[in-house]
Design a protein around this nucleic acid. Structure first.
Length: 136
DNA sequence: GCCAACGTTGGC
DNA sequence: GCCAACGTTGGC
């Protein structure tokens, strides 16, 4: 199973809203690299839910509930979205500064491509981040 | 097809 | 609020 990280500004859509809605279409991605990553997601894949701008930390884990389909908010019909389902919160949110301070995580896309909103996370990085967050 | 201008994202 | 990174747009 592949692992991912998705970003959201909590002002626009927060983890609390994701939990309240349970299943949420992940719309509005307008970047081809991020879209390509969403197309590669399989049902059941897990992803970290990261709060950008405010918080700057991984706050929870979501599961891909529906694989990529045309984004209904894209009038041109060029981009896709997936449906995400809330799984569990991180017992201890993992902050960006913690990630930056961890040499083993220097290669994660969150740091290397700060503007990418949907990115793959290697199995090794996933394990490290789960351990840092107390997530089991 | 190149590249300058401009807009957006996101960290600080 | 500022700025770096970077994607997009439009003139040529």
């Amino acid at each position: 199973m592949a692992h991912w990280l998705v970003k959201s500004e909590p002002d626009a859509f927060s983890w609390e809203q994701q939990v309240a809605n349970k299943i949420e279409p992940w719309t509005g991605v307008r970047n081809h690299q991020a879209a390509a990553n969403m197309k590669a997601m399989k049902k059941g894949d897990l992803a970290f839910f990261y709060h950008s701008n405010i918080g700057k930390e991984i706050v929870g884990v979501v599961r891909v509930h529906r694989e990529a389909y045309p984004d209904p908010t894209d009038e041109a019909g060029r981009f896709v979205c997936v449906d995400m389902q809330a799984v569990k919160p991180m017992p201890t949110p993992v902050t960006l500064s913690q990630i930056k301070a961890t040499p083993e995580l220097a290669e994660v896309s969150l740091i290397r491509q700060s503007r990418l909103s949907v990115m793959p996370i290697s199995d090794e990085h996933w394990k490290i981040l789960c351990r840092m967050g107390g997530y089991k």
